[in-house]
């Protein structure tokens, strides 16, 4: 198993570096803009303008870098399946002393580890950012971010068996939709664009419920991750065991 992890690390290094680079760049940019609000020309804004703009800045420059990081980690992890197929590494692994459980668990473990790293980075930077600037609307932001992150992880779990079954190339669009666009549009669409009053009302009541049931929310998220992860793990093993659907000419 260590061999497979090392291989994916060597192959996915560029995604990791790119993700971390963009994350740091976005964060740095966020800090600069927030400082300009405090000390620069933007300090003259009135209270409501200031609050709206700062909320936007906080979202864009704290959540987005982490989202980019998550997506790139996520892409890096899944694209290793694609590159395995394109260079016929899968044939080599099937002829090596590796069972389907090992092949599957490596992909799930990688995705989960990368997700945890990105999640911890977000929590860490969120805390630092919040303590430096006094995060506006911090609770809502953190909950929205957590929901997004969990959606991305669940999407990633679903995409692993799909990538094996359809050898990735047909599932790029689905992957993007499932893993990134859908949750982003759902959550950020409602919050940032404020396109529908009724949606905003639903969102606000949901938000209040979430804020008052944080522990329950964490438990639900945990069980969702475990159940969805386990089901997809079993599906993936089944696909790899059948083999003909992925190796047949």
């Amino acid at each position: 198993m260590t061999g497979l992890l090392k291989k994916d690390f060597y192959i996915g290094k560029k995604f990791l570096l790119l993700g971390i680079g963009l994350f740091l760049f976005g964060l740095l940019f966020g800090y600069l803009i927030r400082f300009s609000f405090i000390y620069g020309n933007l300090a003259h804004l009135d209270a409501s303008e200031f609050s709206d703009n700062v909320l936007m800045i906080d979202i864009v420059f704290t959540f987005v870098p982490v989202l980019v990081l998550l997506i790139l980690f996520f892409q890096g992890s899944l694209s290793s399946i694609y590159t395995d197929f394109s260079c016929k590494w899968h044939l080599y692994t099937f002829s090596a002393p590796l069972n389907p459980q090992t092949l599957t668990i490596v992909k799930f473990a990688e995705l989960l580890c990368l997700w945890i790293v990105a999640f911890m980075l977000e929590l860490g930077t969120g805390c630092i950012y919040g303590s430096v600037f006094g995060f506006s609307n911090a609770k809502t932001g953190m909950i929205a971010y957590c929901i997004l992150a969990v959606c991305i992880l669940l999407g990633g779990f679903c995409m692993i068996p799909m990538s094996y079954r359809y050898r990735t190339q047909n599932s790029v669009l689905t992957r993007l939709l499932l893993g990134f666009l859908l949750p982003v549009y759902l959550v950020f669409g409602v919050i940032v664009l404020n396109f529908s009053e009724s949606a905003t009302k639903i969102y606000n009541s949901l938000k209040l419920w979430c804020i008052s049931h944080k522990v329950l929310l964490c438990v639900i998220a945990f069980f969702l991750i475990v159940i969805v992860g386990f089901i997809n793990y079993l599906i993936c093993i089944r696909i790899i065991k059948r083999r003909d659907c992925i190796c047949g000419d």
């Binding site: 198993m1 260590t2 061999g3 497979l4 992890l5 090392k6 291989k7 060597y10 192959i11 590159t83 260079c87 016929k88 590494w89 044939l91 080599y92 692994t93 002829s95 090596a96 002393p97 590796l98």
Partner: peptide
């Protein structure tokens, strides 16, 4: 499979890897 060596018609290893890295990978397999 621990007792078989396989050679395919095309290289089944990733192009980005170096032989030294391949050694580390296969040592774990």
């Amino acid at each position: 499979k621990n007792r078989i060596g396989v050679v395919f018609d095309e290289l089944p290893f990733h192009d980005q890897l170096t032989p030294t890295q391949l050694n580390n990978v296969l040592a774990g397999i």
